[in-house]
Design a protein around this nucleic acid. Structure first.
Length: 767
DNA sequence: CAGTGAGCGAGCTTCCGCTTGACTT
């Protein structure tokens, strides 16, 4: 019999706490929630005041059995789930499942995992807060109602197996609307004038001043005219303005800011950042990684100060506590920080080291002094034009936190390069070295990355630290959006350059529209989004979550009855659901593009059973319509008649090679070549199935054959050792076999392989 | 694995938030 049992949510936390609490205490974990609404059906008795039907999910049965056993063996049970809405609900479910008396259950909370905070908590137990629990029940039930009533409407009116929800549908909406802004964006061009001035024309580069003209010119003609004016102008310094300023460090990481910086600085996907952070957390190297709080424990503040003073000196230290400002933050945990501030680096994989270093730097920087900068602006006047030039330079007088870490921006703008301005005085005469007018283009708004989408969701107060990564997976898994690259296109840039009294015209190429790992909406995402906006505008409104959160907050403080709140919401919501089912037609995103020039048949596109298709002709006529699937880079919304007609040119023959016909087509996995009964994928972006030549086709086939042969480590005839994604494996007659642990693939003989295959029992295919 | 697009319709799909594994061809 152990005197005391403490239940926390996370096993790693349990391990740490147990160390603080002596041998009268046993600490175990519930692994998060232990009960949820029934998996099948709605799980809510609507006609009985929204009574929830809770059940223990199958995968939680084992944990619950262990909890029950431990509870039976203990005299006192302390429920130490997190101090937020979900944590309170977990406490309540634990009390119910372990049959604890609610009036006497010992509910404790602590924000920091320190001996002091924990003993303090043990000395001040309280009861389970039913108002807070009820606000969680309202949240849970509302989400179930929204998800489980709207999704079936989509199955009927759009396509099976689709989904909608308070969080995911807004995430999709953001991406769809951004894409439409990009589609409707019209690029404009203008000429920007940059100059390099010199203090003394006989001297060298050290006295160079880079400046930009205050005026932009709409076209080449005007830009050229201005350069002609520049030719004969006298330039002088009209003003020198020196302004001191300070820069402050960013707060320590929350889940959202960690995901953003891990993407910007390390190129991690949101899911990858979380997986690596989880490893660091489990190894006891960082604090909890799912948090919305920027606050640091007193201990962390003190330790950071020690580290900063010993490494950089007293004047680099400035202890700060940051206030969390994100909407709906619950602050059950600390910010994400190193568990031990004096550990600069950790052992582990490359990614673990890199992410840890980022967390260490961010945390330390947050406790360092402001940087002092001096911003100098020179304005330069012209003798024969009202246009002025200005040059901006920034000098760091004291680096402060910048010694360690600076936050990155989402979209780097490229030409704000910093440089040091040479000393100049007002009235000083300047001489131009070169003045150039360069054609520039306005850019459409940027597409979201996973990380910038998380940032936006957090700003809107939608979703929680534990759901950002799963939400982004969900909207991709449903096919609503897709993370993709784009090659971009070349465009010519005209540059007019004035040097030594002569204007020369040149041109250079730049790439525009290049994208890497950006979120693109898919046709089905756009159709579902439009359907939801037409029929459930309240739910997909950007403010919906904020509005219901306000009500949950009222429930949490006892100012609003939770079942009443649900009733108000549901009565109008459910009416919308039934009306939509009754009155709305199926939505296919159909567009009629025009007619086939030769036959006059109608050409249209729509979402078909197996995805987006182009169609020539109509059903119900004598002549059956012809169909062609849309490739990934064309949207139903923007495809043109010519693009649609083009799709019907495939598959086509490239001619014969060694007396066998080579066919190029496009299928389930993109464009391919079929030759001698085998398929070869075309290179993404560089090979176009419409213009591919026989010669290139032969090349592709040869490359593939060569690549495949490199994957074969050993060839024993019918048995081959292949280099695969998860390490080497054996293959025989299209069956694959794993190597037993500890096998050295270098030393495998054919006999060894036969043995491994003989001993391996193929498990039944499971899902 | 590189297709499919007639119509009927059984039985299935689905939410958000807490937490980690077990396992991968």
């Amino acid at each position: 019999m152990i005197e005391n049992l403490v239940i926390v949510e996370s096993p790693a936390k349990a391990k740490t706490i147990e160390k603080f609490l002596g041998k009268d205490f046993r600490v175990i974990s519930s692994f998060g929630h232990i009960r949820d609404l029934a998996k099948k059906n709605l799980g809510i008795d609507i006609n009985n005041n929204f009574t929830p039907d809770y059940e223990i999910p199958k995968e939680k049965l084992k944990v619950v059995a262990e909890l029950r056993k431990a509870a039976a063996e203990s005299k006192y049970i302390w429920i130490a789930s997190d101090e937020d809405r979900e944590g309170e609900a977990i406490a309540w479910h634990l009390a119910a499942v372990l049959k604890l008396d609610l009036s006497s259950a010992r509910r404790i909370v602590f924000h920091e995992i320190t001996k002091e905070a924990i003993s303090n908590a043990i000395q001040n137990p309280r009861k389970v807060d039913m108002n807070l629990v009820n606000s969680q029940q309202a949240r849970r039930i509302l989400d179930r109602l929204v998800g489980f009533e709207i999704s079936p409407v989509l199955w009927k009116k759009v396509q099976p197996a689709l989904s909608a929800g308070r969080v995911q549908s807004v995430a999709v909406r953001l991406i769809v609307e951004r894409e439409r802004e990009i589609i409707s964006f019209r690029t404009e061009s203008f000429f920007k004038v940059n100059a390099i001035f010199n203090i003394d024309p006989s001297k060298d580069e050290n006295s160079k001043i880079r400046a930009e003209a205050s005026k932009k010119f709409p076209a080449e003609k005007e830009a050229l005219k201005f350069l002609e004016v520049c030719k004969d102008s006298v330039y002088s310094v009209a003003d020198v303005n020196v302004k001191p300023g300070t820069k402050s460090p960013a707060p320590p990481f929350t889940t959202s800011t960690l995901q953003q910086e891990a993407y910007r600085k390390l190129g991690f996907s949101v899911a990858q950042a979380m997986a690596v952070a989880q490893k660091l957390y489990e190894a006891g190297k960082i604090t909890y990684m799912r948090t919305d709080s920027t606050s640091l424990s007193k201990l962390a503040l003190a330790r950071s100060r020690e580290v900063i003073i010993s490494e950089f000196g007293e004047k680099y230290s400035k202890t700060r506590q940051f206030k969390t400002k994100s909407k709906g933050a619950q602050e059950a945990h600390e910010a994400i920080r190193p568990a031990y501030m004096d550990a600069h680096e950790v052992s582990g994989t490359q990614n673990e080291k890199k992410l840890y270093e980022l967390i260490w730097k961010r945390t330390i920087a947050s406790q360092m002094s402001d940087a002092l900068v001096e911003k100098t602006t020179i304005s330069i006047s012209m003798s024969n034009s009202p246009v002025t030039f200005s040059s901006v330079g920034e000098v760091v007088k004291f680096d402060g936190f910048m010694k360690v870490y600076s936050e990155s921006a989402d979209y780097e703008n490229g030409d704000d390069e910093k440089y040091i301005i040479p000393p100049v005085n007002k009235g000083m005469r300047l001489f131009y070295t070169t003045i150039s007018a360069t054609r520039k283009f306005t850019n459409p708004p940027p597409r979201y990355t996973e990380a910038s989408l998380v940032k936006k969701l957090e700003e809107l107060g939608i979703g929680r630290p534990s759901t950002y990564a799963p939400t982004i997976s969900t909207i991709q898994n449903r096919g609503y959006v897709s993370r993709e690259d784009r090659q971009g296109e070349k465009r010519q840039i005209t540059v007019l350059t004035l040097t030594k009294g002569n204007v020369a015209t040149s041109s250079r190429t730049e790439i525009t529209g290049k994208e890497k790992s950006k979120l693109f909406p898919q046709d089905i995402g756009m159709i579902v989004n439009d359907f939801l906006i037409e029929n459930f505008s309240e739910i997909v409104d950007y403010n919906f979550t904020a509005e219901v959160e306000e009500q949950f907050d009222k429930i949490a403080v006892g100012k609003l009855d939770w079942t009443g709140m649900l009733n108000d919401f549901y009565s109008s919501f459910h009416k919308t659901v039934t009306e939509t089912l009754e009155k709305r037609n199926r939505k296919t995103g159909v567009r009629i593009l025009g007619n086939q020039p030769d036959t006059g048949e109608q050409v249209s596109v729509k979402m078909g059973r197996f995805g987006p298709v182009a169609q020539i002709g109509e059903t119900g006529n004598d002549k059956k319509p012809r169909f062609a699937s849309l490739p990934k880079n064309l949207l139903l919304e923007t495809i043109t008649l010519d693009e649609a007609l083009n799709l019907f040119r495939l598959p086509r023959s490239l001619g014969e090679y060694e007396e066998e016909e080579m066919i190029v087509g496009t299928g389930k996995f993109g464009p391919y070549i079929k030759y001698k009964g085998k398929f070869y994928s075309l290179k993404k972006g560089s090979d176009d199935p419409y213009t591919l030549t026989l010669e290139r086709g032969v090349e592709i086939i040869k490359e593939k054959v060569e690549n495949d042969s490199r994957k074969i480590l050993k060839d024993f005839g019918d048995i081959k050792l292949i280099k695969g994604r998860y390490g080497p494996y054996l293959t025989k007659e299209k069956q694959n076999y794993r190597l037993p642990k500890g096998t050295d693939p270098e030393k495998l003989t054919k006999e060894d392989c036969i043995g491994i295959i003989g001993r391996s029992v193929k498990p039944e295919k499971s899902t």
